[in-house]
Amino acid sequence: MMSLGPAMFYVFAAILVFFALSVIMSPNPVHSALYLVLTMISLAGVYFHLNAQFIAGVQLIVYAGAVMVLFVMVIMLFDIKQELRAFTKGLISGALKVASAAFVAGYLIGTFKDVSVGSQSASLAGNTDITKELALMLYSKYVLAFEVLGLLLLVVAVGAVAVSRVKGGTHAKH
């Protein structure tokens, strides 16, 4: 599969930009989480068209599935309502923050304008067993990093329980 045609690319880009903007603009955190799920799903579609089929599946399962379920469950735990003041105070500082982010984006886009890293010649398009090659690389060249990441996940699981633990267990009196 080649990369997206122009029309499809602009449709995907518009959808992604709209959802990403909705994540940061909606005052209700539940709506933010749901818009973030939609952003992840659209990104999975873009990955699929960029010949990263397996990564697209992992994105759907891990991000749109597991990580977002974690977010939504924590939000439910907190009983969050519509926030009255969702954004930080200060008009000038807010304008400066938006301007700095816009500067970063503009600077990056200006840099990318002339990028031409094999944009015509090389592509993964003809490669049919990307997932197999990915697995071979992950378990040979990158096996040490893979194991270290497993260790990291174990440490994080223990650490998250230790940080959010309630004294006296789940039946503690408040």
């Binding site: 992604l16 930009v17 994540v23 926030e83 969702a86 954004f87 923050k97 982010a101 970063v104 984006a105």
Partner: peptide
């Protein structure tokens, strides 16, 4: 496209007050 989405994330971190957002 990636740069635009990145800048949206940056604005969110700078301007929101809710830790989860």
């Amino acid at each position: 496209l990636s740069a635009i989405i990145f800048s949206f994330g940056m604005i969110g971190v700078l301007m929101r007050k809710n830790v989860i957002v």
